[in-house]
Computed example of a mutant assay.
Amino acid sequence: MLIDDPAAAVLGLAWAQLPPLPAHAPVLFLGARPSAWLASVAAPAWHFAQDFKPHADALQALGYSVTPVAEAERHARVLLLPPRQRQAARALLARALEHCAEDGQVLLAAANDEGARSLQGDLAALAGPLQALTKQHCRGVWTAPLRAERINHALRAEWRALDAPRDNAAGFCSRPGLFAWDRIDPGSQLLAAQLPATLSGAVADLGAGWGYLSSQLLQRCAGVTDLDLYEADARALQPARINLARVPHTARIEVHWHDVTHGLPRRYDAIISNPPFHVDRADRPEWDRRSSRAPPRRCCRTGSRGWWPTGTCPTRRRWRRISGTSRS
């Protein structure tokens, strides 16, 4: 089933304003999400890129190939659905221009209450005059055929660098667009302070982000022998690895790009998590309900414990039913 995604639908309307491309013309879709209009226009030459594992899996289930983009790739058109976070969105705009060929065009769409007008101004600052349409409380925007002399190359380089991992104010490696990228989330901090020093064995961190909880676990719990981080946002994996490399430890560590709603591949002695209640600005508790399905009995050893930073979320009741114990 296709997700209800007005921005993706409006991107399709923007696409329909442009002349048809030959079937062999290369097209890149950054931040791609499923939408009904893709079935009628997407060709084998299209390249889909998506860092969020549930969206990537949904695209692949529909038959679209989701793969990394090589630096040298150039495309006749580049489509994008930018993230809400301003620095991450600007970095993606710059990346779109890098991958767009001479005389190619860049198209984007976003919800009005998620910065669509600001994104339009940012793209104009990079690429010059634009056209736009509005529908379903969203805005679709596209460039004229790109010319090198109209592109602000200095601004593009500046914004492209915004995506680079860097230390935040708390001293942890992160990057714009990740959850609580520039600070330590209070819920995670509260949970970390409650982790018992006796916690040991194999541990999983669900929705690990840039690795704060796991780094604190390694510092506080010397008995941890195996630690698996599961994170749906591929952009968080490198910062997480950097942060864990800074902590002296002897545990075996793996960082996985994985949607935990599909379950886990092994059993654990303990599972820690700050569940994802929000996607962008939207309050989406169904993500927590879905993530709480991740630790079924086949993933939990007898006597396992689960640790979450709340006493009321559905995961606590579910964990009691699964393992007979919980901590929150």
Rank of each mutant, 00 (worst) to 15 (best):
V224K: 05
Q219I: 08
G209P: 05
P19Y: 10
A9D: 14
G209D: 06
W308V: 14
L123G: 07
P26R: 11
A36I: 00
R95M: 11
W46A: 01
K135G: 11
D113W: 06
R317D: 13
A101V: 05
R327N: 11
A282F: 08
A36P: 15
R317T: 14
P22M: 02
A161E: 13
A39D: 13
R284L: 14
S291E: 05
A70K: 10
T250M: 06
N274W: 02
E98D: 15
R139W: 04
P186E: 01
T302Q: 13
A14Y: 07
R84T: 09
R95V: 09
S328P: 12
C300Y: 01
A45N: 07
I242P: 00
P239L: 03
G31N: 07
A101K: 12
I3W: 09
P295H: 08
I3H: 10
A132R: 07
P68T: 03
E286Q: 10
P82K: 02
E114F: 07
P239R: 04
D5G: 01
D4R: 12
S35D: 12
G209Q: 06
D51F: 04
I242V: 08
M1H: 09
R321F: 00
W181R: 01
A124V: 02
G324A: 05
L130C: 10
I253S: 13
P6D: 02
R298W: 08
C173A: 14
R95K: 13
P44A: 02
G121M: 02
M1V: 05
A282L: 10
Q85V: 14
Y268W: 00
Q50D: 03
A111P: 03
D280R: 10
Q136K: 14
L213M: 09
A204N: 05
D5R: 11
H24T: 14
P129F: 00
H258M: 06
V247D: 04
P296E: 13
L2Q: 03
V224E: 13
A110D: 11
E286L: 02
A45Q: 12
L13W: 00
P129R: 09
G171E: 09
L178E: 07
S323K: 06
A222H: 11
C299I: 01
Y64K: 01
G31V: 09
W142V: 03
C100R: 01
R160M: 11
R220P: 05
E114M: 10
C299E: 10
N274E: 05
I253E: 09
V203W: 02
R317I: 01
R252Q: 15
Q238E: 15
P82E: 00
E102H: 12
A144P: 00
A101C: 04
Y212I: 11
